[in-house]
Design a binder for these strands. Structure first.
Lengths: 208, 208
DNA sequence: CGCGTAGTTGATTGGATTCAACACGTGTGG
DNA sequence: CCACACGTGTTGAATCCAATCAACTACGCG
């Protein structure tokens, strides 16, 4: 029987550094290989004809980007912070090769995980009130951010958060401050995050 | 070589009617078969712990729902209007069987199409201003709605549109009226839609 | 004919956007 | 080493827009 190609198996692949704002791939380009985030955070971006930018999703260490469901990339990917990533050559994905059944493979899990990153945005933006939105966002990323000492690494620019949540950087700033004053989170540095009251955070994230 | 199982091939399958509000499947249930929309519109719904409801996506004639990327359904599906659908048994999807390569098959296309339905919501909600959001929504569904005589069939309840766009039914009503007064759309009946000025509609949908 | 639901419209309130100014950190050049 | 510029982040104040509540209409159904 066909042996599942573990797309996460090639751990030996060298890590490639990227500075914040660097482009990993561009929407419309032929998708030739996969990208796995090792450190830092990547963002999926959509540019409209008028040049308006929307951050559609964030990708965290362990996430795989650029699954070739289509021959061309369906979004642009950029480094949201300084990061280290890996290119995964994916010859098994070319037409003509067999593939294990959808349902319980690494591949379908990777597809689902990438898809979930996009769907999550809709569920977060769908909430009413920006306190709920930001709380839902913080709750979401907190589960994915790596810990450093006492706090989580939180190197996401405010502008990216604002675009992701379909609001302005000012509102992000104010709402984060509000969560700090409520003693729900703490931010010892601008790029550090501590969740002081997880249950309260989840409660606010759910809604009124 | 393995012969691709065309999941859209079983056109002979009988059409099953469903009344508006009927449930097709529920989030968390084991996914045993696919659903293809023949007539009418289906919606994907997420219920939060508190019972808040969010319409995550709409599915139109030709769309396939319930692809088992996971063993259990990732969302609930309901009839947004009276509809006719088809169950597609999908034994080929069970673990253990081979599968043609991702990249150019009916399956990957179906996965991508289902995914796109969810991603589209994020891109629409991400716009600023409700005129832009509603215009983007109308522009999106207009490409998928079947024509009847002079107008498009538009049997989507206002409450569903409101939930999909993360706003209130009142705002939907007002904004649609605004688009009518601008001569961009017309609605000869509550469930009929005519696009009078497609380019203007697209322009408003893009933003300022 | 009466009832219930979905849809529409109006008036008020609250909250987010916007504009503006300021604080902070970083990098550059004198 | 300091001065300066630049970008990002933060705060304040005024405006505007959407949510909310309420009343009313249209429609389908018993």
């Amino acid at each position: 029987m066909y042996q599942a190609p573990d797309i996460l198996a090639e751990r030996r692949a060298i890590g490639i550094p990227a500075r914040a704002q660097e482009t990993l791939f561009i929407e419309g380009e032929p998708s030739s290989c996969l990208f796995e985030v090792r450190r830092g955070i990547a963002r999926a971006v959509h540019y409209s004809a008028e040049g308006d930018r929307q951050v559609m999703a964030f990708f965290f260490p362990g996430d795989v980007l650029g699954l070739p469901l289509t021959r061309r990339h369906r979004y642009s990917a950029e480094a949201a912070s300084d990061m280290i990533f890996t290119r995964l050559a994916a010859p098994e994905w070319q037409p003509g090769n067999s593939f294990p059944a959808i349902g319980d493979t690494m591949v379908s899990r990777a597809i689902w995980r990438e898809e979930k990153s996009f769907i999550t945005r809709g569920l977060i933006i769908g909430r009413v009130g920006y306190l709920a939105r930001v709380a839902a966002f913080v709750n979401y990323v907190a589960q994915r951010l790596p810990m450093t000492g006492e706090a989580l690494e939180f190197p996401i620019p405010r502008g990216d958060i604002a675009s992701y949540l379909a609001t302005s950087p000012e509102t992000i700033c104010r709402t984060l401050r509000q969560l700090r004053e409520m003693q729900i989170i703490a931010m010892p540095r601008i790029d550090r995050l501590q969740i002081k009251n997880p249950s309260r955070l989840a409660q606010i994230a759910e809604g009124p």
